[in-house]
C-alpha cells in the first residue's frame, strides 16, 4: 500500500495578472484518496526470497 498520489488544487500560490494589482493565493497539495497496492501473489515471491536468504 502506498500513499495516494496528489494533485494541486485551486489555492496555489501564484501571481495572477489582475487588473491593477498582484494577488497571492494559498496552495495545498491534496491527496486524491487513491492508493496503489501490490497484488498478494507477490508475497509468495517475497516468501521464497526470504526462505532463500534465511536458509542460505
Amino acid at each position: 500500500m502506498t500513499e495516494s498520489m496528489t494533485e494541486d488544487m485551486d489555492g496555489k500560490i501564484v501571481v495572477k495578472e489582475i487588473p491593477c494589482q498582484l494577488s497571492e493565493c494559498a496552495s495545498t497539495a491534496v491527496h486524491v484518496h487513491l492508493g496503489l497496492y501490490i497484488k498478494g501473489r507477490e508475497l509468495l515471491v517475497l516468501g521464497e526470497t526470504v526462505l532463500k536468504q534465511v536458509c542460505a
Binding site: 500500500m1 502506498t2 500513499e3 484518496h33 487513491l34 492508493g35 497496492y37 501490490i38
Partner: peptide
Amino acid sequence: ADYNWQSAGIVDIATFPGCSCSPV
C-alpha cells in the same frame, strides 16, 4: 485485473504518509 501492466491494483481510500505497507 493488473493495473497498468503492473502486479498492482488501485483502491479508493483515505491514504496518507504512514499508510505505506498497510495490508489491503
